[in-house]
Structures are given as structure tokens and as C-alpha cells.
């Protein structure tokens, strides 16, 4: 028996007779990093808002840890953290004060809250800027502070809405690492919405694809790939040759049994590799 953290059943939402979310069924199990994919305006955020009980579904229901999001939103919100798209903070307060407000709203005792705030600021790498006003933060720092605000209430489920939009590649990598760390070290189940496929593929254990309000596919990337693309892809092996490729090597590889195709490729450099290398060494 697997433990279901979040379950949506026939979830539907109308905005002015427009079906924004259409009969969505979702299941997220403990420990998963669930990637919720879809283009802008597909209904990702609306589904998330309904899961948190911030928006009422037109029909259907969402349960988180067995609590109904519409009827028991407080119980749901006690165990769930939410990072909104374009997270905002009180700009004239410091990072520490912003997090303090969140711990107070959660009713965490002062002493424990102070320790926890220090700990999470450390995790996201903002301890040195803890007493700086958030108004002076860069976009990437704000996003990391957002991650801190997710962690500070010690959730069992974290729902992150587009956590990597609008930040530079180095920042994206940091955020993705943080998410993986959260999942592994703190045992937090994660639901992550995004339209950046490359990042999702890197960290998600399972995905759901939503298009025009409907879930069109759900499962591991491998499962969906087989189901949707209906091809059993051949396994491929990349071989690096030093210093130069001679035709005789290709010929001898081709002779090995089971090899169907040998292709010569010139080295490609991705801009991202170059970028990250440069800024890491800086």
C-alpha cells in the first residue's frame, strides 16, 4: 500500500463559464518529486490554488493527507507549504523579519522559530544577508528566500509554483539542488509546476502533463514516453574517442553483434555549460 499525499478527484473549475480546470485526477505519493507540466494558462496554478483551499472548486475535490482542502483548509495549510509564482515579501522588512512573520502565523514558539529561521537561511545560503531589507535583494535571492519560507514551517508537502522562472542559470541550478535536497534530507514530498522541461526532467521522479485544463498524461517520464510516443527506443551508447576518430574504429565497432547504427558526431558545447563553468570559477 503506497501512501498518497495529494489526491485530486474530478476536479473542475469554471471562471465565467470558461472551463479552466477540467476533470483533473491526480495522485502524488510520499517522497515523490512530482513535476506538474503544461504551457502558460493551462490551469496549473488554478489546480494548485484549489489544492490549498485558496480557491473553491466548481466540482470535484482535493484531499491532502486525507484532509479535504475545501472543508478543512487550516489542517491542509498546516502541513503544506506553498511557494507562489513571483513570490513577494514585505520589502521594508528584513529576511529574518519576513520569516518571523510566517513562523508566527504558524504559531511556532519564538525560541524554536529563531533557531529554525537561522537553520533555513543557512540552507538557502542567505545567512549573511539575513538582516538586510528584502527590497534590496536580487530576484534570485528573493527566490531563495521563498524556498526558506517554504522550509521554515517544516512541511510534509511543498507545492512550488514555477520556482525557477526569471532567474539566471546559476540561480536555477541552486534552486533545483535545494529542491532535491529538501526531498532527500527532509523527506518532503514535492509538487513542482513548470513549463521548463529540461529542469523538470533533471529532478522529477514523476510527472503529470496538463493541457487546456485536462490531464493528458501521468506517470514516470519513461512510462509516458513509451505510452505517448509508442516507440520502444533503442538503447544508445556514447563513446568518446581520443584524439581523432579513424574510419577503422567505426568499422570495427559496426562489426560487433547487436549494433544497429554508428554515427559520427562533432563535439557540441552547450551555452549553459560554458555559462555555469564561467560563473562557478569566478
Amino acid at each position: 500500500m503506497k501512501n498518497i499525499v495529494l489526491e485530486a478527484r474530478n476536479l473542475t473549475k469554471f471562471y465565467n463559464h470558461n472551463k479552466v480546470v477540467d476533470n483533473v485526477n491526480l495522485q502524488i505519493e510520499t517522497g515523490e518529486i512530482f513535476g506538474f507540466l503544461g504551457p502558460n494558462g493551462a490551469g496549473k496554478t488554478t489546480t494548485i490554488l484549489m489544492a490549498l483551499g485558496l480557491t473553491e472548486p466548481s466540482s470535484g475535490e482535493v484531499n491532502i493527507f486525507g484532509y479535504n482542502s475545501t472543508r478543512e483548509p487550516l489542517k491542509v495549510k498546516r502541513v503544506t507549504s506553498y511557494l507562489p509564482e513571483n513570490v513577494g515579501f514585505y520589502e521594508d522588512l528584513t529576511a529574518q523579519e519576513n520569516l518571523k512573520y510566517i513562523t508566527r502565523l504558524n504559531g511556532i514558539p519564538e525560541k524554536k522559530a529563531d533557531e529554525k529561521i537561522e537553520e533555513v537561511l543557512n540552507i538557502v545560503g542567505l545567512s549573511e544577508e539575513a538582516n538586510k531589507e528584502v527590497g534590496k535583494y536580487s530576484k534570485g535571492m528573493k527566490q531563495r528566500l521563498g524556498m526558506a519560507s517554504v522550509l521554515v514551517k517544516e512541511p510534509k508537502l511543498a507545492i512550488l509554483d514555477e520556482p525557477t522562472t526569471g532567474i539566471d542559470p546559476k540561480g536555477v541550478e541552486e534552486i533545483l539542488n535545494l529542491i532535491v535536497k529538501m526531498s532527500r534530507e527532509q523527506n518532503i514530498t514535492i509538487m513542482l509546476s513548470s513549463h521548463l522541461l529540461y529542469q523538470v526532467q533533471k529532478i522529477c521522479t514523476k510527472i503529470g502533463i496538463i493541457s487546456k485544463g485536462r490531464i493528458v498524461a501521468q506517470g514516470t517520464i519513461h512510462e509516458i514516453g513509451q505510452e505517448v510516443l509508442k516507440i520502444n527506443k533503442e538503447d544508445s551508447l556514447e563513446v568518446k574517442v581520443n584524439p581523432k576518430l579513424s574510419p577503422s574504429i567505426i568499422e570495427s565497432i559496426k562489426k560487433i553483434e547487436g549494433i544497429t547504427k554508428v554515427e559520427k558526431k562533432s563535439p557540441e558545447h552547450s551555452l549553459e555549460e560554458i555559462y555555469i563553468k564561467y560563473f562557478r570559477e569566478e
Binding site: K75, R78, T80, I102
Partner: peptide
């Protein structure tokens, strides 16, 4: 407009 509303309302308060 600052985007703090959804953060605050996603905390366990009425």
C-alpha cells in the same frame, strides 16, 4: 500587488 497575499493566506490562518 506585492505578491505577499498568497504567501500569507497559504499559512494556517482563517
Amino acid at each position: 500587488s506585492k505578491g505577499t497575499m498568497s504567501t500569507v493566506l497559504s499559512q494556517p490562518i482563517y
